[in-house]
C-alpha cells in the first residue's frame, strides 16, 4: 500500500517534470518558461530523494533553484527593454529540430531496451553526506580542486565580460 502510494507520487512528479520541461521549450512567454523550470528542478530534486541522494537533493534546490534560476531570470529581465512587457521567444526550424530530438529519443529508448541491465536496487544507503565528503576529500580531491579553480575563473570571467568598456582604460 505504501509502496503503491510512493510509486504514484513518483510518476506524478515525473509527469510534472516532463510537462514543465515541455513548457520550457515550447512556451511563448520567457518568464513563464523560467518558472516552469523551477517546477522541473524541484521535480528532479524529488527524484534524488527517491534515489536516496539526500545531499544532492539539497544541493539541487539550493544551487539550481536558488542560484542558477535567479541568474536566468536576471538574464531574461536584463536582455529585454523594460517597456517590452511581453517577453516573447519565437521558434525557428521547428520541424528539423523535432525530427532530431525524436531521433535522439528513439535511439536512447532503443539502447535502454536492448541492454540487459540486471541492476538490483542496492537498498536505501542512508545519509550520504558523510560518504560524499570523504570521497571529495579523498579519491576525488583533484576534481574537487579543479572545480573550485573553475568557479573562481568563471567568476572573474563573467565580471570581466559584463564590465562597461571605456571607463577604466582598455
Amino acid at each position: 500500500m505504501e509502496s503503491m502510494a510512493s510509486a504514484a507520487i513518483f510518476y506524478g512528479v515525473a509527469a510534472l517534470v516532463l510537462g514543465s520541461a515541455l513548457y520550457v521549450v515550447v512556451g511563448k512567454n520567457l518568464v513563464h518558461s523560467a518558472f516552469a523550470l523551477v517546477a522541473a528542478f524541484f521535480g528532479v530534486a524529488v527524484f534524488y530523494v527517491y534515489l536516496g541522494a539526500d545531499f544532492l537533493a539539497g544541493a539541487q534546490v539550493l544551487i539550481y533553484v536558488g542560484g542558477i534560476l535567479t541568474l536566468l531570470l536576471f538574464g531574461v529581465m536584463l536582455t529585454n527593454r523594460i517597456y517590452n512587457l511581453n517577453l516573447r521567444s519565437g521558434a525557428i526550424q521547428v520541424v528539423p529540430g523535432a525530427l532530431s530530438a525524436g531521433l535522439v529519443f528513439a535511439l536512447l529508448v532503443w539502447i535502454i531496451q536492448s541492454v540487459e541491465w540486471g541492476a538490483m536496487d542496492s537498498g536505501d544507503p542512508g545519509p550520504t553526506s558523510e560518504a560524499i565528503g570523504r570521497l571529495l576529500m579523498g579519491d576525488y580531491l583533484l576534481p574537487f580542486e579543479i572545480a573550485s579553480v573553475l568557479l573562481l575563473i568563471a567568476l572573474m570571467g563573467a565580471a570581466m565580460l559584463v564590465r562597461r568598456r571605456g571607463k577604466s582604460g582598455s
Binding site: 517534470v17 520567457l30 536566468l72 521567444s89 525557428i92 526550424q93 529540430g97 532530431s100
Partner: peptide, 27 residues
C-alpha cells in the same frame, strides 16, 4: 532522463532567444 534530454535538445535546436537556449541546456 532520455525524455528530458530529448526535450532539451529540441529546445536548443528551435528556440530563438539565447536565455531560453540556456534553460534548455540546464534541462
Amino acid at each position: 532522463s532520455a525524455a528530458l534530454f530529448s526535450l532539451g535538445v529540441f529546445g536548443v535546436l528551435t528556440r530563438r532567444n539565447a536565455v531560453n537556449v540556456l534553460m534548455s541546456i540546464e534541462l
